[in-house]
Amino acid sequence: MAKTEFARLFRATQENPILRQQLNTASNQEEFVSMAQMHGYHFTVDEWQEMIGFNVEELQCELSEIPGI
């Protein structure tokens, strides 16, 4: 289920720059997941980390620099 939701979100951010821009304003992973959930994409922080393959705390960049988002 989480893989499907993440794929839907990925496609939506590619097609909708406004959604992508809104999600890029998230200051941390919890806020990002919460914002995604408000837009109808249902996955947890743990599922998100598993899908992208790293923890945001380990990354020294802006959320907008995450590949695919």
Rank of each mutant, 00 (worst) to 15 (best):
M1I: 06
A2C: 05
K3E: 12
K3R: 12
K3S: 10
K3V: 05
T4H: 08
T4M: 10
E5W: 09
E5M: 10
F6N: 01
A7V: 00
A7H: 04
R8S: 07
R8I: 01
L9R: 11
F10L: 15
F10W: 15
F10H: 09
R11F: 12
R11T: 03
A12S: 14
A12Q: 13
A12Y: 06
A12P: 01
A12M: 09
T13Q: 10
T13N: 12
T13K: 08
Q14W: 11
E15A: 15
E15Y: 00
N16F: 08
P17T: 03
P17V: 06
P17R: 08
P17L: 04
I18V: 15
L19Y: 13
R20F: 05
R20L: 14
Q21L: 09
Q22I: 04
Q22S: 12
N24L: 12
N24W: 00
N24K: 11
N24M: 11
T25P: 06
T25W: 02
T25V: 07
A26H: 11
S27K: 15
S27D: 10
S27C: 08
S27W: 05
S27N: 14
N28T: 03
N28C: 15
Q29Y: 04
Q29I: 08
Q29A: 10
E30D: 14
E30P: 03
E31V: 14
E31M: 12
F32V: 01
F32Y: 10
F32G: 00
V33Y: 06
S34M: 09
S34R: 15
S34W: 06
S34H: 13
M35N: 10
M35H: 13
A36D: 05
Q37V: 11
Q37P: 07
H39Y: 15
H39G: 04
G40W: 08
G40V: 04
Y41R: 11
H42W: 11
F43A: 05
F43L: 06
F43P: 05
F43M: 07
F43Y: 10
T44P: 06
T44N: 07
T44E: 02
D46E: 15
E47W: 00
E47L: 00
E47V: 03
E47G: 04
Q49K: 14
Q49N: 14
Q49L: 01
E50L: 00
E50V: 02
E50P: 00
E50S: 07
M51W: 08
M51P: 00
M51C: 09
N55G: 06
N55S: 07
V56I: 13
V56R: 10
E57F: 08
E57R: 12
E58Q: 13
L59V: 07
Q60D: 15
Q60R: 13
Q60H: 08
Q60G: 10
E62C: 02
E62L: 08
E62F: 00
E62W: 01
L63M: 14
L63T: 04
L63S: 00
S64W: 02
S64V: 02
E65C: 09
E65D: 13
E65G: 02
E65L: 01
E65S: 06
I66A: 03
P67G: 00
P67M: 09
P67T: 06
P67I: 05
P67A: 09
P67F: 07
G68A: 01
I69E: 05
I69C: 10
I69R: 10
